[in-house]
Simulated scan of single mutants.
Amino acid sequence: MPLFEIETESHIIITWAEEENDARAVVADAYPQDDLLRITKRPRDTWVISKGVLGLTTMKADPCVVARDCLSRSAGDKVNAIRLYRMETGSDLENARKAIESNMVMGW
């Protein structure tokens, strides 16, 4: 059974259907308020979503790890750790203070 990719104004739907009219019926049944923008019969019977296209391939640093590293580099000096955290993450003063202080409480 072919796999169809159907795009509406609000959704992207992936469904199996015997033919295009059956795929259209799936959308009409599930999202009757949506206008169909595009329907594509996929060349294979599997669907792959590229993490690179979604921007999910670069791992971002965990804020706690960054805060603990800043505390370590500043030898526990809170003001210096906040400054380092702001430089590392681009956070504003209030968010940097919260990150550093919450990690100090947890016993970095």
Rank of each mutant, 00 (worst) to 15 (best):
W47L: 05
E19Y: 12
D34A: 01
A17Q: 04
A61N: 02
T58C: 14
A67H: 07
Y85W: 06
S102T: 10
G90P: 13
W47A: 02
L93S: 14
A99H: 04
S72I: 09
I12C: 12
M59R: 11
W47E: 03
P2G: 02
D45S: 13
G107M: 07
S91R: 12
C64Y: 11
T8P: 13
G55M: 00
G76W: 04
P43L: 04
S10M: 15
R86T: 10
V79P: 15
E101F: 06
A61R: 03
V53E: 11
W108A: 06
A23K: 02
E19W: 08
R97N: 15
E18G: 13
L56E: 00
D45K: 10
R38P: 14
A99R: 01
R42S: 10
E88G: 11
P32M: 00
P2V: 04
V26G: 03
T46I: 14
V79E: 10
S72G: 06
K98R: 15
A99K: 04
A28E: 05
K41M: 03
E7D: 04
V53F: 08
A23W: 01
L54P: 09
G76K: 07
S10E: 13
M104A: 01
M87F: 12
I49F: 01
D34S: 05
A17P: 15
L37N: 07
V66Q: 00
L71V: 08
M59W: 08
V53R: 11
D92F: 11
L3Q: 00
E5T: 09
L3M: 06
E18N: 09
T57N: 05
V27K: 01
T8Q: 02
E5Q: 11
I6E: 00
I39L: 09
R38N: 12
M104Q: 03
H11L: 08
M59A: 10
L54Y: 01
T40G: 07
D22Q: 08
S102K: 13
L56F: 03
I100G: 00
D22L: 10
A25W: 00
W47I: 05
V65S: 14
D22I: 12
V79D: 14
I49L: 04
R38S: 02
G107D: 08
K60P: 12
Q33S: 11
R68W: 06
